[in-house]
Write a protein that binds this DNA or RNA. Structure first.
Lengths: 196, 196
DNA sequence: TTGAAATATGAATCAGTATTCATGTTTTAT
DNA sequence: ATAAAACATGAATACTGATTCATATTTCAA
């Protein structure tokens, strides 16, 4: 059929989800090119052809996973940051929440990073939109005197870079139980770098 | 022949270099899987089979390019940092030199990042060794009172993250002529984050 | 209950491309 | 000058894996 139309039965909904999760696991573990459709359907305990009932291509599932990761990351961070008394505390909370999220969904993290090479547009759109919202927050905080004035966009990208790299090093490579230490050390640098 | 032994004639040396440069251009532009050996040899103006005289596989050239990028980056930064009067100025100079290097060799930058998915060990080795040397410098500087005390390793990774991400955003995506502005803004954050 | 729509199956198709190899050509050492 | 070693060539091989499709089976509305 080769569509990726939304399923009309609950069985269909469940199958699609099975396949999506299997794709997350396989692509996350082996990478986009190494993970075959056969791997994915085997892991989803379904037939090869079933894949193409729900997704039109391998790129298609991949794109959906990138989208999913974007929504989840935003949701997780937004929620973590919600209760912070000020912007600096929000930075700490956001960084910690991000690293915890990477612990929980390492495959999605890898998928987003690989998107740079598989679907560059999706990757760029994801980070650009994230950065835009992030910069707006930093701008507001600076206007309110909570941060030293400065180029919010450059700051947003720099802070995103810190989070991405620490996530890779201290979560994906080295499943350190001491995420709090990493957050504290990085945050003390960020705090003094941004405080008014 | 399928070796990657070093060539014994000057013609061989030149051919190998041609192919290496073509591989840099093709893989850098299209990515590892999209760039075919045929693309590479066509661009190098040589026959398909010649590739296998100098490299044993596509992964093999790729690995060599990653190695090369590692050496070059180190050399560029080491040299840029050499004249700095203190560690903070070294940070500024290092960041600027890195971004300038990305302007000159965007393909090599992309190759190193893609290495995470093609040759994870090479990628990890590259950054781990870089981070180790970087952290040692930061440690010395902190001991000398040039930086506030703190976990040098976490700092090194955070600073590498800033450089990588700004390079991607402001050089690869947006060939901004205003690298200096980006450096200044990022540096002012780094400076206050690290200053004693 | 029943037939049309939706979903499931996996063997067969199809395309792409990494790698090899048998055969020339060029270089180098003597 | 000459033979051995290096190097060059590109058609042929070999293999992988994405996508299709004809054929079941299941679901659901009427």
């Amino acid at each position: 059929m080769s569509t990726n139309a939304y399923p009309r039965t609950s069985r269909g909904v469940a199958r699609r989800e099975q396949i999506l999760r299997a794709a997350e696991a396989m692509i996350g573990a082996q990478g986009f090119s190494a993970a075959s459709i056969a791997d994915i359907t085997r892991h989803a305990k379904t037939a090869l052809g079933t894949f193409y009932i729900y997704f039109s291509s391998k790129e298609d599932v991949f794109r959906e996973l990138v989208l999913e990761m974007g929504q989840l990351t935003r949701a997780v961070i937004t929620q973590a940051v919600a209760g912070a008394p000020n912007r600096l505390e929000a930075e700490r909370a956001g960084l910690k929440a991000f690293l915890r999220f990477v612990v929980e969904r390492p495959s999605l993290y890898r998928i987003v990073e690989e998107a740079r090479f598989i679907d560059a547009e999706a990757y760029k759109a994801y980070f650009t939109s994230f950065a835009k919202a992030y910069a707006a927050q930093l701008n507001d905080a600076a206007a309110a005197g909570e941060l030293r004035p400065g180029d919010a966009e450059v700051r947003a990208w720099a802070l995103m870079g810190i989070a991405k790299t620490l996530g890779e090093r201290y979560v994906l490579w080295d499943d350190t139980s001491d995420i709090d230490h990493v957050v504290d050390e990085a945050f003390s640098m960020i705090r003094d770098g941004l405080a008014p």
